[in-house]
Design a protein around this nucleic acid. Structure first.
Length: 195
DNA sequence: CAGTGGATGCTCT
DNA sequence: GAGCATCCACTGT
């Protein structure tokens, strides 16, 4: 039995380990921005040796946050239209991160509906661009620590079955199964989580 | 349900 | 100037 307990806010030191170790621990955690957010149901690993990673070619102005300390946010603009949020998670210098790809909305759903302009809960945070719009994440969040306002990351409250899937939406190293999904969740970014 | 293409702007070569 | 860690509308079954 899992007794009910108060949620534990994860401090930035929690993120000081490899992305591969951290990803299974963060799936099922709750991400809040100004009190709005939900349970993380999909994550993608990007490490520096990965040709698909922004950090692959070394530090640049855009990816500076990825080379900064763990436990901070890396936010970038995608296709000139959307924002995407990462958790910087390896020790400084290794430049790996976890892309938050989908949430199950639990906190501030009305606010998300207002920002997204749709009411179907499955369409609020089912993609990296969508969840940033729902949580109002943008350029000003790049480089901010994840254990301070407006961010809050609450530890997973119970165990969760994890499915590893083929990555999607990228052109290089697509074959790596570095996309972690909460098994059977209806809030994933694409399909039922198979790949 | 699967596949396609346009929008849109910033980063890096 | 090319390419992009996306989303949505639209097409054809």
């Amino acid at each position: 039995m899992t007794p009910a307990r108060d949620p534990v806010s994860l401090q930035r030191g929690f993120f000081e380990r490899s992305a591969h170790q951290l990803a299974p621990q963060l799936l099922g955690a709750t991400l809040l921005v100004d009190g709005v957010g939900g349970v993380i149901v999909e994550l993608e690993i990007y490490e520096q040796s990965d040709p698909a990673s922004h950090s692959y070619g070394g530090p640049t102005k855009r990816n500076a946050s990825m080379f900064g300390p763990a436990g901070h946010a890396y936010v970038y603009r995608s296709y000139g239209v959307h924002w995407c949020l990462n958790f910087v998670c390896a020790p400084s210098g290794e430049a790996s991160a976890l892309l938050v790809r989908a949430l199950e909305p639990t906190h501030g759903v009305e606010k998300m509906i207002e920002r997204r302009g749709v009411s179907d809960p499955r369409k609020l945070c089912s993609g990296p661009g969508k969840l940033c719009q729902a949580l109002a994440v943008g350029a000003k969040h790049d480089g901010l620590p994840l254990d301070e306002t407006p961010f809050q990351v609450l530890a997973r409250a119970r165990e969760l079955e994890i499915v590893r899937c083929r990555r999607i939406g990228i052109t290089r190293a697509r074959e790596k199964h570095w996309r972690l999904c909460a098994s059977g969740s209806p809030y994933l970014s694409r399909g039922p989580g198979r790949g």
